[in-house]
Write a protein that binds this DNA or RNA. Structure first.
Ligand SMILES: [Mn+2]
Ligand SMILES: [Mn+2]
Ligand SMILES: [Zn+2]
Ligand SMILES: [Zn+2]
Lengths: 129, 129
DNA sequence: GACCTTTTTAGACAAAGTCTAGAAATCAAC
DNA sequence: GTTGATTTCTAGACTTTGTCTAAAAAGGTC
């Protein structure tokens, strides 16, 4: 874990390692508030400011990606390979969709003076009645 | 405009007509704060609560769609036909992309017990350096 | 006009996230 | 290992977007 942070150019402090261990345990989608709660569930280890700073830092270094699907919070995704999402608007659940499971092609020309950063595909679903 | 609201099952009050006139003047993407500022730019006509309530009501009646691309605010889109978006992460600009300009097919099977509500494609671009 | 229902309002409140200024930890000579 | 510089962390104030509440206003029906 420490090596992984170093390789990404992140000084592996104790707080950053704590947060990394939670997130990189498996591919998952966690909000900052969830990370804060998990990291401090045993004893109070990491402050709110540090959780937000660390998640932002990890995202800027490519260790996490941000998923914006809910107007009230950002999800941090430990799966950084290019993929898409189902978002259940009723439950708030976010599920990965493999890139190959979606045929996305023929993208239009980008606006003048811009370059692509990412293409997000979000399939919003609701509980069927 | 009044007819349009009635047809959507919305009682056309003075405040709702004011907001509708702003939004339905052309296809555009406005945040609640922007609508509030525009509607009250001459004199104070509509309260904050009413702007939020009205935008939510219009969206629930299909007169507007919500675009979630920015973690800090929701955009309300007066173009309700199915389409996609460029989002310039540097400028915050949101540009429509015609549905036909993107080839999207082969969607994966939906999670058990869910039905599709929408498929959002967001092409995030940044200012090229 | 009296009554009833719907809508609007000011302003308190909530949730997510940022900022600040000082404390703590780390690092680099010496 | 002490000194000094740099980086990181922290508590808590603050900001922004949005929601809630309880009362006022508006509108519809008789
Ligand atoms: Mn919000
Ligand atoms: Mn935010
Ligand atoms: Zn994911
Ligand atoms: Zn649009």
């Amino acid at each position: 874990m420490i090596a992984r942070l170093k390789q990404a150019g992140v000084t592996p402090t104790q707080q950053r390692v704590e947060i990394a261990q939670i997130l990189f345990a498996k591919p998952q989608h966690l909000s900052a508030e969830q990370v804060l709660a998990i990291v401090n569930s045993e004893s109070s280890l990491v402050s709110k400011a540090t959780v937000y700073n660390t998640l932002g830092l990890f995202a800027s270094k490519g260790l996490l990606s941000e998923v914006i699907v809910d107007p009230t919070k950002v999800f941090y995704d430990s799966n950084t390979s290019s993929h898409h999402h189902f978002y259940n608007v009723d439950s708030g659940e976010l599920i990965d969709v493999d890139s190959e499971a979606v045929n996305l092609s023929n993208l239009p020309p980008l606006p003048e003076g811009t370059e692509a950063e990412a293409v997000d595909v979000i399939i919003r679903v609701r509980q069927s009645s």
